[in-house]
C-alpha cells in the first residue's frame, strides 16, 4: 500500500513539474515581459534597463530555468493588470469558486448516482428510458445553453432569480444548477453501466436467493461493488466542474477563478494565467491520487494490478 501511494505521489509530482515547465517555457517564449510590464510606448532605454534588471538578457535556457524555479517556489510574478502578486489575485478568488463547485459536485453525485442505479435496476423500463434519454441530451448540451435557458426562464420570464450572480443564496442558485446539470448525464450513464456489470453476478443472485429484500441487496451487495469502479469518474467530474466554472462564472458575472481566467486571457496577463494553470493541475493531480488511494482501499486487487 505504501509503495502504491508513493508511486502515485511521485507520478503526481512529475506531472505538476511538467505543467510548471510547460508554463515556464510558454512565459519566456511568447512575447517580451519587459514590453508587457512597461507598456508598448515605453522608451527603448527603459526596456533595456528592465531587461538587465530582470535577467532577460540571459540565454533563453537560463531564463526558462529561473522562471521554472520561481513558479515552483510559488512566485508567479506581478500581474500587470492590478499591480499585485498573481498568487494573491488568484487565491483571493478561490473561496468564491469553491462556493459554486462544492454544491454543484454534491448535486451531481446525489442525483446522478441514484438516477443511474435506478435506471440499471429497472433496466428497459420507462424510467430507464427516461433517465437515459435525459442523459444523452445532458451530454450533448453546452453548459452556457443550460445557463442561458435558466436565465430565460427564471430571470426574464418569471423574474424570481437575479441573472447576474451576487455572492448570496439567490444569486448562487442558477450558477450552481448550471454547473451541476452539465455532466450529470455522464455520471448517470456511467453508474448505470457499472451497476449493470455487477447486477448479474453470482453473488448478487445468492444474496437474493438467501432472502434479502431488494433494498438490502442494492445497499450491501450492488452499490459497494459498483462504486469501486466509479471513483475515477469522480476525478473526471472535478475536472469538468473546474472547466465548467470558466464558462458559468463568466455567464453569471460571478467573481471567481473562472471569470478571472477569462479576463486574464483576454488581456494576455502572462502571470495570472500560468498561476491558475499550475494551481489547477496541483488540485487535479492531488484529487486523482486521493481517488486512486480510495479505490485501492475499496478494491485491493488494484494493488496487485498496479505493479
Amino acid at each position: 500500500m505504501i509503495r502504491f501511494v508513493a508511486i502515485r505521489l511521485l507520478r503526481a509530482v512529475l506531472t505538476v513539474l511538467a505543467v510548471a515547465l510547460f508554463a515556464a517555457i510558454a512565459m519566456r517564449v511568447s512575447g517580451d515581459p519587459a514590453v508587457i510590464a512597461l507598456g508598448p510606448t515605453a522608451p527603448a532605454e527603459a526596456i533595456a534597463a528592465y531587461r538587465v534588471q530582470h535577467g532577460l538578457d540571459q540565454p533563453l535556457v537560463v531564463q526558462i530555468f529561473v522562471q521554472f524555479t520561481a513558479l515552483l517556489s510559488g512566485d508567479f510574478g506581478i500581474s500587470p493588470l492590478n499591480g499585485r502578486s498573481a498568487l494573491q489575485v488568484v487565491s483571493q478568488r478561490v473561496p468564491l469558486t469553491l462556493l459554486l463547485a462544492i454544491p454543484a459536485l454534491l448535486i451531481k453525485v446525489l442525483v446522478g448516482i441514484p438516477a443511474g442505479t435506478i435506471a440499471a435496476i429497472r433496466q428497459n423500463s420507462l424510467l430507464d428510458r427516461l433517465v437515459m434519454s435525459a442523459s444523452v441530451i445532458g451530454i450533448a448540451i453546452p453548459n452556457f445553453v443550460i445557463g442561458l435557458g435558466l436565465v430565460l426562464i427564471f430571470a426574464i420570464n418569471l423574474g424570481v432569480l437575479p441573472s447576474s450572480g451576487q455572492p448570496n443564496l439567490p444569486g448562487m442558485i442558477m450558477p450552481v444548477l448550471t454547473l451541476a446539470l452539465a455532466g450529470i448525464g455522464t455520471l448517470a450513464r456511467f453508474t448505470r453501466s457499472s451497476v449493470l456489470g455487477v447486477i448479474n453476478q453470482p453473488h448478487v443472485r445468492t444474496a437474493y436467493a438467501k432472502g434479502l429484500t431488494e433494498r438490502q441487496v442494492i445497499r450491501r451487495h450492488i452499490l459497494p461493488n459498483a462504486t469501486a469502479a466509479m471513483f475515477p469518474v469522480l476525478g473526471l467530474m472535478l475536472g469538468s466542474v473546474l472547466a465548467g466554472t470558466v464558462v458559468v462564472e463568466t455567464l453569471f458575472s460571478w467573481p471567481g477563478i473562472g471569470s478571472l481566467l477569462v479576463t486574464a486571457v483576454a488581456n494576455r496577463d502572462i502571470y495570472v494565467v500560468p498561476c491558475i494553470l499550475v494551481l489547477s493541475s496541483v488540485v487535479m493531480t492531488l484529487t486523482n491520487v486521493g481517488v486512486d488511494v480510495l479505490q485501492a482501499l475499496r478494491d485491493p486487487r488494484i494493488l496487485q494490478r498496479g505493479r
Binding site: A18, M27, L261, L277, M284
Partner: peptide, 23 residues
C-alpha cells in the same frame, strides 16, 4: 507522459493558456 500531462488539467484551461500566450 504527454498523455498523463494532458489528462492532469482540464483541456479548456490548457487551451485558454495557449490562447493567452500565443494569440
Amino acid at each position: 507522459g504527454l498523455i498523463d500531462f494532458q489528462a492532469s488539467v482540464p483541456f479548456l484551461i490548457i487551451a485558454l493558456t495557449l490562447l493567452a500566450f500565443f494569440g
